[in-house]
Amino acid sequence: MKQFLGIVVCALALNSCDDGNLIVENIDFTDVPTQSCTTNDLLYKLNDQESLILNIPSTTFSNNPTDVGDPISLDINSTNQVVYTFYNGKVVTANICDVIKPPTPSVNSQWNATSGKIQITVTQQSTSDATNNSTTITGYNNNIVFKNITFDKGDGTTQFYETFSYGDYLVKAVPLPFAFNGILSKCDNSNEVYDFSPSESFTLIIDPLLIANEVTLPNKPRIGVIGATVNKLAYRLFTNGVVTKSYFCNATVPVLPSVSQEWLGKVGGTIEVTTTTLTANSFTHTIVLKNVTLLKGNSSFLLGDNYKYGELITIK
């Protein structure tokens, strides 16, 4: 990407012209939305005849909120670049993102940042479902600020900003599948209960007292609390393979498929188990999760007031 932006800068320089009258004193893109190229890592803002390009690795943008007062910080250098350009006409996306640039407009002035810090504060964006009080993560907002940034104006002078707000860049979240059928299984050699689909699993290390082979009284379910070891709840999303029943109940966790995301139940949520008779010697345990939150780093979402984890059949 460094080489790509270098080509862009050179191409702009070759096509630039000086009308002899332009003097840029200050730059301000506060109210301009951030856009991104689809073919590279460039972020950019366009304001009539001006552009402000930010070139940093796409992996910088994390799907995890930053701690308060501790933003992601990058040095401005040959890898992390900030470039301001003023054109002699209205600039469009093609002037920034296309490999072969349009012949017009041409460049009147270009500033290259030579030092400073890029600071990114990440916050989670969510929506709520009022019917069950569940939440869904929709994306992660990256608020970008330049600190102590110095621009080389290309004419022997520089421009310094102690604080320069670039603005927000929203990375959309990919929804978790949660494509479970609610038919639970239990390991014979442990207290792990599980449900799975080809790309995910939902496991619960359940307190065995919650699934006793005794019918519960009406409106009197057995109640447990999500914990760090007992009643430990974990959602996992996988890549590089398909999840099958053979993945579970092993002394050693299989290497494949590999885990791409793991969300753990927040300590304190409630488990309710209602047991009914299936046959003379078997029982159906309906497991419901109430007010349970799943956590991954600083990200979180609510399963809602009542989430039916599934039904487990046991034999007496």
Rank of each mutant, 00 (worst) to 15 (best):
S299D: 13
D98K: 06
V122I: 11
K232Y: 09
N133E: 08
G167W: 07
I226S: 09
T121P: 02
A173R: 01
V68N: 03
K2C: 01
N95Y: 02
N77M: 01
P57G: 06
N281W: 01
L210A: 13
I23A: 14
T203N: 10
S16N: 12
L12Q: 15
I120K: 01
V122Q: 03
P257E: 03
N88L: 03
G89E: 12
T123I: 14
T239E: 15
Y140H: 12
C37Q: 01
E272S: 14
G69E: 08
T216M: 08
V267E: 14
E200S: 15
N133R: 10
I206H: 06
A113Q: 00
K290F: 05
T135E: 03
A130Y: 02
A251D: 09
I120T: 02
N219W: 00
P218I: 08
N143T: 13
L176M: 03
V242W: 08
N47S: 14
L5S: 05
P198Y: 13
N231G: 04
V107M: 14
T157G: 10
Y84C: 09
I287C: 11
G310E: 11
P208V: 08
F202S: 02
L303W: 09
D207F: 05
N240E: 12
L46V: 10
C249W: 05
I205N: 15
I313R: 13
N240F: 03
D168S: 15
S62I: 12
K186C: 04
N108Y: 03
I27L: 11
L233N: 07
P103C: 07
N15T: 13
T136L: 02
V259S: 08
T163H: 07
Q81E: 02
L176G: 01
R222H: 03
I226H: 12
E50V: 06
Q125H: 00
I315V: 14
L5D: 08
E162T: 13
A94V: 05
T39R: 11
N40F: 05
R236E: 15
E50G: 05
D195T: 15
N298C: 00
G297K: 04
I76Y: 03
L294M: 12
V288M: 06
G139I: 10
T216R: 07
D31V: 13
I23E: 13
N88D: 15
V24W: 04
R222T: 04
L52E: 01
L294P: 09
D70V: 11
S73T: 10
I72V: 04
T136H: 00
T284E: 15
G304Y: 02
C249Y: 04
S78N: 13
G69T: 09
N231T: 05
D18C: 07
P198V: 11
T277N: 08
N213E: 14
S300Y: 15
Q125P: 00
G20P: 08
G224Q: 05
I271Q: 00
R236D: 11
G268H: 06
A11E: 14
I287L: 14
K296T: 03
V107C: 12
D207W: 04
R222Y: 06
S16F: 06
F202Y: 10
W263T: 13
N21M: 14
N291E: 13
L264S: 00
S185D: 08
T286E: 15
S165I: 12
P102R: 02
Y140A: 12
I149K: 14
S258W: 00
N133Q: 11
V215P: 00
Q110V: 09
D305M: 07
P177Q: 10
